[in-house]
Amino acid sequence: MDSSNQSPPPIANLELKARLLILLLVLLLLGSVVYVLVARGAFERTQQLVLVADDSEGIVVGMDLTFSGFPIGRVGRIELSADGNARILVDVPRKDAHWLRTSSVFTMESGLVGGTRIRAFSGMLTDPPLPDGAIRRVLRGDAKAEIPLMVASVRELVSNLSALTGPDAPLNGSLRNVQTATEKLNGPSGGLGLLFGNEADARKIITTLDRTNALLARLDALALKADGVASRTDALIANADKQVFGPTGVLGDAQATVIQLNGLLADARNSLRKVDAVLQEAQAIGANTREATNDLGALRAEVEGSLRKVEHLVNEINRKWPFARDAELKLP
């Protein structure tokens, strides 16, 4: 008997279990929808930033605008402007918009690996915040664009290398010369033969060296003699030292003489002090003499005055007395 002809085995709480499964599916589907909407930023309050680029290659809707490696915005739309530039409309959530300032710089970079990235750089976070709908030009850096230039350079380098390493290349000739030089170095004349090119000149150098050696030997003997002279000079200096600086040397006598001179100078200083006192007294005598001279002047004036008075008196007496003579002269 086939199993389909039999009545199926009853399942406890079948409808409840089926409802639970349906509920689970509905919850998962609703949760997925809400999660994707949240992940796409459907519930975020955003402001718009318009980036203008000459080429929008690599830019796709939904890609991030990053600041310090953190996504702070999302490309919402790309359009071609009337002047032929690409306008990249970026939705920046309000909560992240404070990272963008009026002085912010925006770059669009295409690396060798991975897609194009849009970055924001805000050097001065104290500048005013970027307004809603601001339009900024984006700086473009494309590593892939460098590849053709690099390939051309590499090709040129390879051709240069080929030219350098060719059979008629200067480098090859230089290497042959080096080989010849190495052979000469290993030859009987060695490095001197390499330097002078022929054996005669190399032999001259060797002769010169021999002579130089002989000259140096003679210089050694001369130096020995100079040593003897120097030792005698040392003895002479020692004797002179003894004569001058010894206990009975000239320097001791000179020191005693200096001491005596010091004593003489002290005596002379005392004598001079006494002479000073005598001079002071002489000055005082001079002063007294000057005063006396002045008094003599006054006295003389008084005497002269008294004499004039006496003379006047005598004249008066002569005039008044009978025996006064006629003193008047009579002319014929």
């Binding site: 999660y35 992940a39 930023g41």
Partner: peptide, 16 residues
């Protein structure tokens, strides 16, 4: 937050 953002980047309307 970063993970959710990555998921959101993958699940564009067309991909979803």
């Amino acid at each position: 937050a970063a993970y959710t953002r990555s998921v959101g980047q993958v699940f564009s309307p067309v991909v979803t």
